[in-house]
Design a protein around this nucleic acid. Structure first.
Lengths: 236, 236
DNA sequence: GCCACTATTGACAATCCTGTACGTAGCTGG
DNA sequence: CCAGCTACGTACAGGATTGTCAATAGTGGC
């Protein structure tokens, strides 16, 4: 029982850096989240272990618990933070006119964004429910991203239609287009290389680029032709 | 000390089924794999715990170790078995003429197959590397499935082209088409409902069906038009 | 310069899971 | 009917991880 009474005096061996660093709560939370995200990107949700993160940062794991209550709390905070980072990145990729505004250029940027820093993986894990184990079934992105995109597509379809004198295609046309592209991008980011290989393509960044270009062209053509064909199947 | 010497005599309460069931090694492996797959589909790779699986089957967890060496061994066996089951299911879905052979019908069946019993999830986990932790990076599907599909598409494109007198589109056209659809199906199986919701669609099975039909129509039209437009962009 | 506040920490507790050791009990061939 | 093989079970060891607690040490305000 007298174990806990030891007043640490025995530690006479480290006079070099005896000072412990003290961050503000916000700083600490930020650093911890960053370290956690790094581990997440590499090894998945299971790789997020308090002791490991603590070691990465040179702190002790109870400090993490102090700032996030529990591992669960850390995971939720991480989910929110990573998801909003993804949103911001995607938004930037879409609206950034830096490298062109053609469908191909935009697709390229979004693809890149999804691939880097484990964004696609985060989405996948979130969808798989590996995040937020019980309660919150997956970290729901507040993404109006898709909404915005669908609006843009709808507008463009309307423009094309008006230009050719056809009637405006139904809103669903735009929604489905966005859904297809979004799903395809996620899927491709996850298993694109495997798909490419098993489908017989040589695979590699060059193929990936050509694939994107091909998809962009497909969408582009679709934009122009849908105005003539959309009424074919109609509502059913 | 004398603990291990207890010869079970104390169990006087269960004369009904005191006999332990003895399976063949193959039976046992099969049952264990099935139980593991059930858990996998529900809770992911982390939910595969030897003790839980054992409890599900009414056996003891060392029995599992007896049949699979280690948890790692179980995971690998599970990966192989589940992946080959997926292959078989997909193959069946594609070639089964039961409910029509139109692109829409085929797509529908494949979509269904991917969705049920966690096939899509398995693929995702495999891609995410949650399977086969270190060594085997992901359970590589021996799927010639995609190969077969791409061949079929290529043939069809050739037929269409010949019928209209156009020149045969490059093989890449078929490969990319398959890649797009495969990636989209996986992505949609994973996050389709979320996408649908955040894109403003009401979501639900009806929407999902319409989406598939829409995609099938898109492919169908593409098949017909690609013969006129494929030479536009050419090689790059 | 002193003091309250809190970020930080080492030690410890509690739990959980995989894997081992060894004995038991069904099946099958002789 | 006996003996061997092996599927199966109980008990336990070992390790890893989250979480608690009381003590310690920067920091900012007075």
């Amino acid at each position: 029982m007298a174990t806990a009474k030891n007043p640490r005096k025995a530690k006479a061996g480290k006079p070099a850096t005896p000072t412990r660093r003290r961050r503000t709560a916000e700083e600490a939370r930020h650093e911890i989240l960053a370290a956690a995200q790094r581990r997440l990107a590499e090894g998945g949700p299971e790789a997020i272990r308090l002791q490991d993160i603590a070691r990465d940062l040179g702190i002790s794991h109870p400090t993490i618990l102090h700032h996030f209550e529990s591992r669960e709390g850390l995971m939720q905070a991480l989910g929110r933070s990573a998801m909003s980072a993804l949103n911001a990145d995607i938004m930037r990729a879409i609206s950034d006119p830096g490298r062109g505004t053609s469908p191909e250029a935009v697709l390229d940027r979004v693809f890149e964004t999804l691939g880097e820093s484990g964004h696609a993986r985060l989405l996948a894990w979130s969808a798989l429910g590996d995040f937020a184990p019980q309660r919150t079934r997956g970290v729901v992105p507040q993404e109006q991203v898709l909404r915005v995109l669908a609006d843009a597509v709808h507008r463009r379809l309307g423009d094309e239609a008006r230009a050719t004198g056809a009637r405006t295609p139904p809103r669903e046309e735009a929604d489905f287009t966005v859904r297809l592209v979004a799903a395809a991008m996620l899927g491709d980011a996850l298993v694109g290389d495997v798909l490419s290989r098993t489908a017989g393509l040589p695979d590699g960044p060059a193929v990936q680029r050509r694939f994107r270009a091909w998809l962009a062209r497909l969408l582009d053509e679709r934009f122009r032709q849908v105005t003539c064909t959309t009424r074919r199947g109609g509502r059913d």
